[in-house]
Simulated assay, not measured.
Amino acid sequence: MDINVGSSVPGAFGNAGVGKLVHDYTFPEEEQRLDLLRNIAIICAGAAADARTMNRNINEALENQPGDLAVAKAELAASPLLAGAESEEINFVLQTGLANAERLLAEPDIWDAVVKIAQACLANDGKLSKEEIEALLT
């Protein structure tokens, strides 16, 4: 199930970081491509965490989070890097971003930080400020 509860970040619902994605089309094309993959990995991180904790297939986990999947697809559709791209290429970029999220969450330091933040969030009625998150990460 997709998280769809209020957040301590104004205007955020589940996809708290999505409004802060990198979009600088003045960068060289290769950097733009890396930014696009980073953005997709950020969007898919919840599904990757769900797959890891629930022992699910990563694609099944993403399908179970329709809000994240819709945001990822909208991000890909809006990218001028993929203008005119075939659906296979767009799906490849989605799968690459999803695999990046899964790979990053497999790193012990990153996973430990995710667990720490999730536990604090659950203990605080699902809300943490930016400052509280930053304090947990130091």
Score class of each variant (00 low, 15 high):
residue 20 K to Q: 14
residue 34 L to M: 14
residue 45 A to T: 11
residue 33 R to W: 13
residue 30 E to K: 13
residue 36 L to N: 04
residue 18 V to H: 12
residue 45 A to Q: 15
residue 23 H to C: 07
residue 36 L to W: 03
residue 35 D to Q: 13
residue 23 H to I: 11
residue 31 E to T: 14
residue 18 V to N: 11
residue 30 E to F: 07
residue 22 V to K: 04
residue 35 D to P: 00
residue 31 E to K: 12
residue 46 G to F: 01
residue 34 L to F: 14
residue 36 L to Q: 00
residue 23 H to N: 14
residue 24 D to H: 03
residue 37 L to P: 02
residue 36 L to C: 01
residue 39 N to T: 04
residue 37 L to Q: 09
residue 32 Q to D: 01
residue 22 V to N: 07
residue 43 I to W: 00
residue 39 N to Q: 00
residue 45 A to H: 15
residue 18 V to Q: 12
residue 47 A to L: 09
residue 18 V to C: 13
residue 22 V to P: 00
residue 45 A to C: 15
residue 24 D to S: 03
residue 44 C to P: 10
residue 47 A to N: 05
residue 33 R to H: 06
residue 26 T to G: 05
residue 31 E to V: 14
residue 37 L to E: 12
residue 42 I to K: 09
residue 41 A to D: 08
residue 46 G to Y: 03
residue 41 A to C: 09
residue 27 F to Q: 15
residue 35 D to A: 15
residue 40 I to G: 01
residue 30 E to N: 12
residue 22 V to M: 06
residue 27 F to L: 13
residue 32 Q to Y: 00
residue 38 R to C: 15
residue 44 C to N: 07
residue 38 R to W: 11
residue 35 D to F: 08
residue 40 I to A: 09
residue 20 K to L: 15
residue 21 L to C: 06
residue 24 D to F: 02
residue 19 G to F: 09
residue 33 R to M: 10
residue 19 G to P: 08
residue 30 E to Q: 13
residue 40 I to F: 00
residue 22 V to T: 08
residue 42 I to R: 07
residue 34 L to E: 15
residue 23 H to V: 05
residue 38 R to K: 12
residue 38 R to L: 14
residue 36 L to Y: 05
residue 26 T to L: 07
